[in-house]
Each structure stands twice: as C-alpha cells, then as structure tokens.
Computed example of a mutant assay.
Amino acid sequence: MRLLQTPPDAARFIQDDMIEDVLDRLDFLRHEPQNALLIGDFTGRLASALAERKCAVTRADSAPGPGELPLDEESPYPFGTFDCVISLGTLDTINDLPGALVHMRNALNPGGLAIASFVGAGSLPRLREAMLAADGDRPAARIHPAVDVRAGGQLLQRAGWARPVVDSRSLTVRYRTLDRLVEDLRAQGMGNVLSSHAPPLTKAMQEVARTHFSAAADADGRTSEIFEILTLSGWRS
C-alpha cells in the first residue's frame, strides 16, 4: 500500500480522519501515553504527533515498512507491554477479530488504553448498489463483510476490554466517476480481501456499474459516497 501512497495526490483521507480522531480522544480522556504501539500507521503521521508529545512509539504492521516491526494481529504480540495500543484501518480484514482484540488488550499495561478504528458496515452504499446492478440476477461477493456498532460492542465484551466504548461517524466524499472512487479505495488499501474472488466484471458489466453510479449524481454531476468509520476503545483493568 505504501507504493500506492507514493504520489503526492494519493487519497489518504480515511487514515487522516482516524488520526485526527485518535488525537482528539487522547486529549478528551486526558490520557498522555508514554509508550505506545501503533498498528497500521502507514503514513507515520500519528507516530510523529505522539513523538511530539514525548511518547516513545513502536510501529508495527503485517507488511512492515522501514522502521516498523512485523506483527500478526491474530497471534499474541511478540514484544512488550504498552500504556496505549492504537490500530488504524486494519481490523476490518481480520478473520479472528475477537482474538485480535484480546491480543490488543494483553499488550497493555494495567490502566492502558486501546483504540481501534476501521471502516464499518455502513460504508460504500453507492458502490454496493452499482455492483449489484452489474451482476444482475447472479450477485457475487465483491466486498468483504464489515462490523456495525452493535456487533462492535459485543466483540469488546467478549474480548474483556474494560469501560468499552463503541461509536461511529460518517465521511461523505463526492465523486464524478466510479473509476475515481475505485482508485481511492485501492490507494488506501481498501480493496476486496476475500480469499475466494468473485468472477471479474466484463466490460459490459463495468459500464452498467458506471451508469448506475452516475445515475445517483446530484445536479453538479457528483455522486455522494459514504465511509462509516467505526471506533472501538477501552482499557485494561
């Protein structure tokens, strides 16, 4: 994904929004971490912001870049404990999400805070509609399942997070074409990660999808797409 982020105009609005939200939460909770683990901070922006707050930062990822440690979020973490663990945009593609949340909790010192933000179930309604229109009578699974607020709360209870909080917010982004939306999704690592890939869309099916997407446009020729950001937070008692 870092290669996709190389162009200066590459879309990164999802992670930017998550980072701003995390920093706001830390300020609101008056939590000043001294030793934080960051997962999925592919731009390094959150690491820089926490370093400015005198926080020692460890960055990790399943596909580590320079200065990052390798991490399998579905396995116990192979390094120490932290007073803050933050995951950005990764948990929506995890098979064992309850287990991943347990590992986040276990990586915390007592009294430590965990925050996980990722794209939730209310996202991409226009794209979903366009794909259904293109598939016709034989709809295929083209977008991996997502978690909603209710399921998020149940997951935190199973994972044993103390004082759990689950909330969501929506970002609306306006597009002139379906192709530009797809470009933005790919640039931000939001493509289909299902192990069984659906049959590829034919050129005719792609045109049906584009037409359906454009038909939802407002008077200015832009179609509004929604990204729901789900955030889970809690403590280790």
Rank of each mutant, 00 (worst) to 15 (best):
R2S: 12
L3I: 11
L4G: 10
T6Y: 06
D9S: 12
D9K: 07
A11N: 01
A11V: 05
A11Q: 02
R12K: 04
F13N: 01
F13M: 04
D16I: 00
L23H: 01
R25F: 05
D27P: 02
D27S: 14
F28S: 13
L29W: 12
R30A: 15
P33N: 00
P33Y: 01
N35E: 11
A36I: 06
L38R: 03
L38S: 01
F42E: 04
T43Q: 03
R45D: 09
A47R: 02
A47C: 02
A49V: 11
R53M: 15
T58I: 14
R59D: 00
A63Y: 06
P64K: 07
S75H: 04
P76Y: 06
F79V: 10
D83Y: 09
C84Y: 00
S87V: 02
G89E: 03
L91G: 02
L91N: 07
D92C: 09
T93N: 06
D96W: 09
G99C: 05
G99N: 09
G99W: 04
V102C: 09
V102L: 12
V102M: 09
M104A: 15
R105I: 13
R105F: 11
L108E: 06
L108Y: 04
P110Y: 03
G111A: 05
G111Y: 09
G112K: 05
V119Y: 03
A121T: 09
G122V: 11
G122Y: 06
G122P: 08
L124G: 10
P125S: 10
P125V: 13
R128E: 13
R128G: 15
M131G: 08
L132F: 08
L132D: 08
A133N: 06
A134M: 11
D135R: 11
D137Q: 10
A141P: 07
R142S: 13
R142F: 14
I143N: 00
P145T: 10
A146L: 15
A146P: 01
V149I: 14
R150K: 10
R150Y: 09
G152W: 09
G152L: 05
Q154E: 15
L156N: 02
A159N: 01
G160D: 05
A162R: 06
R163Y: 12
V165T: 12
D167Y: 13
S168V: 07
S168H: 04
T172L: 14
R176H: 10
V182C: 10
V182L: 15
R186W: 07
G189T: 06
G191P: 03
N192T: 14
N192A: 14
V193Y: 05
S195N: 05
A204C: 03
M205N: 05
V208H: 02
A209V: 06
A209R: 06
F213D: 00
F213M: 01
A217L: 09
D218T: 14
A219Q: 06
D220K: 12
G221M: 03
R222L: 15
T223H: 01
E225R: 00
I226H: 09
I226L: 13
I229K: 01
I229D: 02
T231F: 02
T231D: 01
L232N: 00
